[in-house]
Amino acid sequence: MIEVRFAGFGGQGIIRSGLILGRAVSIFDEKFATMNQNFGPEARGGACSSQIVLSDTKILYPYVTRTDYLVAMSQDAYSTFEHELKDEGTLIIDVDLVRANSNKKTYDIPSTRMAEELGNKIIANVVMLGFFTAISKVVSKEAMEKSIRESVPGRFIDLNLRAFNKGYDWGDKKLSEDN
């Protein structure tokens, strides 16, 4: 069982990220995924997080307790959820938005900046998803691409896939640097 948390603030597509990952795992990888969301009343700017539990068997208890992967896209998110990360867990951050000071394994990516370079900072979450997919390997790349195709409006599919791949490549690069 793998527990993942995406966290940031409203408007960053945190919950959508969770949905895309969950859909990829449960529909296209044919495993099980439960996605939960927490958000405040604000449409923009409030704290927001989504938690995904992934498993090969049916998921009974639907919440994360000790996360394997924390994807933090705001400083708040990092400081709120860092402590629930397992010791051997992995922290993934947007390097421009979060200043991490963690003893856990950390990978960073300038996802928002990359999204802006692609033309729209709204897709920072998809860049991040690509990065997450490459780093974590909990879900296949193909499943994620299929899931993105299903989850975004037709005219944005190409842009989103480009963003995803950009993130994914960055992840590959980081991993090879590690090795």
């Binding site: 439960t34 996605m35 939960n36």
Partner: peptide, 9 residues
């Protein structure tokens, strides 16, 4: 709310 906002297959 939990079940309502929980996504699963």
């Amino acid at each position: 709310e939990c079940v309502g906002h929980m996504a699963e297959k």
